[in-house]
Design a binder for these strands. Sequence first.
DNA 1: TCAAAAGTGTTATCCTTACACCCATGT
DNA 2: ACATGGGTGTAAGGATAACACTTTTGA
Lengths: 322, 322
Amino acid sequence: MGGQSGIEIGLNAAIVGVRDGQPHILVTREGNGWDALPYGPFAPLDHRTLDIGLRNWVREQTGLELGYVEQLYTFGDRGRHAQRGDTGPHIVSVGYLALITEDPAAGPGGASFARWFGYLPWEDWRHGKPAILTDEIEPRLKRWAARPDQDDTHDLVLTRRERLRICFAMEGADWDEEKVLERYELLYEAGLAAEAKRDGREAVKFWDKLPQLGRPMQFDHRRVLATAMSRLRGKLKYRPVIFELLPDSFTLFELQKIVEAILGHHLHKQNFRRLVENAGLVEPTGDVSRQTGGRPAKLFRFRRDVLLERPSTGVRMKGGPG
Amino acid sequence: MGGQSGIEIGLNAAIVGVRDGQPHILVTREGNGWDALPYGPFAPLDHRTLDIGLRNWVREQTGLELGYVEQLYTFGDRGRHAQRGDTGPHIVSVGYLALITEDPAAGPGGASFARWFGYLPWEDWRHGKPAILTDEIEPRLKRWAARPDQDDTHDLVLTRRERLRICFAMEGADWDEEKVLERYELLYEAGLAAEAKRDGREAVKFWDKLPQLGRPMQFDHRRVLATAMSRLRGKLKYRPVIFELLPDSFTLFELQKIVEAILGHHLHKQNFRRLVENAGLVEPTGDVSRQTGGRPAKLFRFRRDVLLERPSTGVRMKGGPG
DNA sequence: TCAAAAGTGTTATCCTTACACCCATGT
DNA sequence: ACATGGGTGTAAGGATAACACTTTTGA
């Protein structure tokens, strides 16, 4: 077996917060114009665990004290962490999802908040099917699916056409909001993500000029972001994680708007309210908010007791009219 | 920030298969009498990805060609990978779950199949509440909960008593079959897992003599196994992963018995059959099996098409009479 | 007065759960 | 005959999804 040399572990955090009712992530803007997630190497001599390393590192860089933190996945692909020369150590990156309540103060590294749909615009169906899907992505994916897939090393249980059907709801299939990562990875594999070109993938030769399909990111950070979005969309439905993004008190409408922003589609108002209340997720504070644009709304707070109650509670909900 | 030195990435696989209707895992028996999961270091020069590294490594050691493989979690705790002296590199371990259909041939390393409930006996409720819980674990956990928890570094959202209630169904709460990892970690933290003593944890001083609470494992492998069991119990309910453990054709009774063995409790027969059939998970092969001890049973096979259909299909099922 | 959002009420449908019962085979 | 597991039918209950409608505020 070959040598074991020069491994470094990178900790990346997709730190999600809400500003103006929209989900944002904390990014740093690099010199080459590509955004990056907050990133730091794991230093085992300083940090007892990976989680502690991540927290310490984010604190040092941005002053943020992270609350909810969840490990997502560990990626080890050579070639997706490359930048030009690539003579450094092999980097294995551990992705994290963190949820915060407030706007972070801009840290020394110049971190700032950016809308997360800027990176994955095809994931936002709140205003109907995104034009970028119909106009740009689908036609190209169809061409890609028509080619044989001998060249790629993918477990060939499914054909390209079947994968398109499942991931991108082609041929009348339903759009599965949780398949964010699968979609991004497919776009990368098809050479439609700008990162594929940067990494020197073969499939890119097939395309002449490509519009920008979502803002690209440094290293494999867009993949980490996609993983974070997948996880959050899934977890929302069976754990009360959404409240890690909200202030202490909020109206049901605010809650709904944020859930919709995370899921990327509209929900049915009346049923949403009833489900949330019946599930015992919230309790009224007694106050009302008059900033609603309409009738004043009761303010609610998260009932922390639910963490001690039923094993699974979340905001499970199918789609509905806007 | 401190130095970055001597990191090694270990790949561990909890390889699950079925023998005699019971789930087993592939283990190697080490010199000191403690079992270990198949383990190998990640060699980035040889392997393009972590998954490929794991597959190659398992192939070399056991001759097994893994099918279904899923990354579980990456653990970086110093002190839980220690063995006596501990002067080696810091080891970050990436845990995997793999499912196989057939008994493996014993590999050169002397790997063998062991019942997975041997390591986590409190997880098997198929014959009622396990005696080891009532007789050994619960009384000790109550004593542990009565002590203050100043010494441990745990995010103190919950008290020890609340954690017991949630993880171990104390005070009338329901047993959540998916909390396998949380339970094992709590036992470790309380010093009730033999690994805690090996790792030199403080809490151990509190106990005089402890019976063996499940077979311990080398390094943090029992934690990886617990993670695997948690994941499998959860995933079963929304993805058709169970069929990765079954031969091409099987009776519904065999299917049910294996699901029960994974979940650790009995299911309601009639409803199980209907749910599985209604969900379109299986189709009859046309043959029957006469090895049933009763009326011959129709043989079924997994309908691979479901992978192309509804976004979530699995064997979701609440408990029922035995 | 109107737009915007807060709220209430009702109903159809599906899924889960539970119970009752008959069928075919080997010993 | 009887034990064992295979297999079918049906009904109660709860959760979801889809409607329609009223109320209260600010502009």
